[in-house]
Structure formats: C-alpha cells, structure tokens
C-alpha cells in the first residue's frame, strides 16, 4: 500500500499523471505475465493492475471476458497469481493491484487472502462487484496493509461519493461510462465536468479514470481532469493477438509509450 502512496506523491511533485495499465493475469500464461509486467513498466506504466480471471465477469466486455477464459483454460488460480506477484516483486517495486470479482476472494477466505497478498507484495484490491456496503469486512481486515480501492460511477450521487471516498484507500477508481469495460470511440461529453466535480469530493484520494480509454488522445483529454488514467482492454487486445511473443511485447510497449507521451503532454 505504501508503494501506491509513494508513487502518487512522487508523480505529484513531478507534476505528472499516473498511467495505470491492466492485463489479465495468466493470459496467455503466468510466466508470460511476469514478462508482460516488465514490458509495461519499461514502457512507462506507473501502476500495474492484474486481472484475476473469473468465470462470470459481469462488469467486463467481450475483450476481458475472452482474456479471462484464456487464463482459466491455462489453469490460472488466485493462489498461483499471488505466487506470481511474489516473483514479479523480486524484479520490480512497481505498485501492483489485483482486480478481482468477489467470489474468488470470498472462497479463498478474506483473512487468509489479505495475509497472503500482503506477504507477496500486492498493494491493493479492486473488486468491481463489492460496493461500499458489502466491503466493510474486507476493509477492516485490510486496513493499512492493503488498499481496498473503491469504485464510483456516473450514477453515484455526491453524498454517496463522499462516503465512498472516506472509506477508500489507494485511489478512487472512477468509471467513466455507464457500462462495462471495453474500448470506445467516444467518451461521454460531460466527462471533464464530471471528473472535476468528483476530484473536488475525492480531496486527498488520487482520482483515476478508467473504462473506455484506449487512445493517446483520450488519455490526454481525460488525464487533464484526473490524477491517473487506467487502460485495459486496448492492451488486452494486443495480447489476444500476439500473446507474449517478442512482436507482441514490442507492440504492447509501443502502445504504452504512446499513452505515456500523451499523458506527459497534459
């Protein structure tokens, strides 16, 4: 969790925005995940979000659904992902957060999960189907060790947002669109205003915007109104095509570099 705090603090002093990149752990396999994380970091990603594959990813669009399925077919489990994080930790201090649906965590046992994740070097958890009211126990167990990163949506009223922010750690994940994950040609036109409004309520908690962001232009536009942007499906699509081959890593790196440049131009 400390790594997340330090990263945002450092970027703030540099006047830069954070680039958060998502890939599905175990796609195409877990060894590849270690290499792909290295590629992302070298290309300029500040925080890595690893998706834990789930059989029923109901907040995800077709791209990440397919990646989940590929990872599950390769026998990826939460236990193995935590072991992989441990390996990645021996190579880099980049903040790592797991994005996972609730059932794998619940089934693992929350107490056990927090202990194992912290020991492996996981910095935070994003659980898209665990709203404020249901996350109390996880937050209590994770306190000060593991950031339970909250999500807010365009449909979240301000009063509720304030409560979400107060309970949140790490950063606030603002879902830019009313919908599921996946690349989009256009983002809502009122997004900049929404982000400005959310930023005021978020206060000290860094504001990260995700869902639908795939191009450098979108990164620049959104980055101007947030502390961080999150890109997922656009990267997962590259992995879907090329796996972790040299060509794939090259293309992935180029994509991240382009996003990085756009974000640094904000």
């Amino acid at each position: 969790m400390q790594r997340l705090r330090e990263t945002f603090a450092k970027l703030e002093t540099q006047g830069r925005k954070a680039l958060i990149t998502f890939i599905t752990a175990g796609d195409p396999d877990l060894d590849a995940t270690c290499d792909l994380v290295e590629t992302l970091v070298e290309a300029g990603a500040d925080i890595i979000e690893l998706g834990v594959p789930f059989s029923d990813p109901l907040a995800d669009g077709p791209t990440i659904q397919a990646a989940s399925l590929r990872a599950l077919e390769r026998g990826t489990t939460l236990k193995k992902i935590i072991a992989t994080v441990k390996k990645i930790r021996s190579r880099t201090e980049v903040p790592l957060v797991l994005m996972t649906y609730y059932n794998p965590l619940y089934h693992y046992g929350l107490k056990e999960l927090v202990k194992d994740a912290v020991a492996a070097g996981v910095d935070g958890l994003i659980v898209p189907d665990l709203p404020l009211e249901e996350s109390e126990e996880l937050r209590r167990l994770a306190v000060d060790k593991l950031a339970v990163i909250p999500l807010a949506a365009p449909t979240t009223p301000d009063t509720r947002l304030a409560k979400i922010v107060a309970a949140g750690r790490g950063f606030l994940y603002y879902v830019t669109v009313t919908g599921i994950t996946g690349t989009r040609t256009s983002l809502p036109k009122e997004l900049s205003q929404s982000l400005d409004r959310v930023k005021k309520i978020a206060g000290e908690l860094p504001l990260a915007a995700g869902f639908g962001i795939s191009t450098p232009e979108q990164a620049r536009t959104v980055g101007a109104h947030a502390d961080a942007i999150i890109v997922g499906s656009a990267l997962v699509e590259i992995i879907a095509q090329h796996g972790a081959s040299a060509a794939g890593r090259q293309e992935l790196g180029d994509k991240v570099k382009a996003l990085r440049r756009a974000l640094d131009a904000v």
């Binding site: 907040a59 665990l130 709203p131 009211e133 979400i164």
Partner: peptide, 20 residues
C-alpha cells in the same frame, strides 16, 4: 434493510447499479 436473509443475500453489484 440491507437485503440479508440471515447470512445470505445482499447487493454484490457494480457501483453503477446501486442507484437503480
């Protein structure tokens, strides 16, 4: 009031749906 039947039930959905 939170939709629990003893230990079961609740609302495990994306934040987007909470308002609805």
């Amino acid at each position: 009031e939170r939709g629990y039947f003893g230990d079961y039930g609740g609302r495990f959905v994306p934040e987007t749906l909470i308002g609805a």
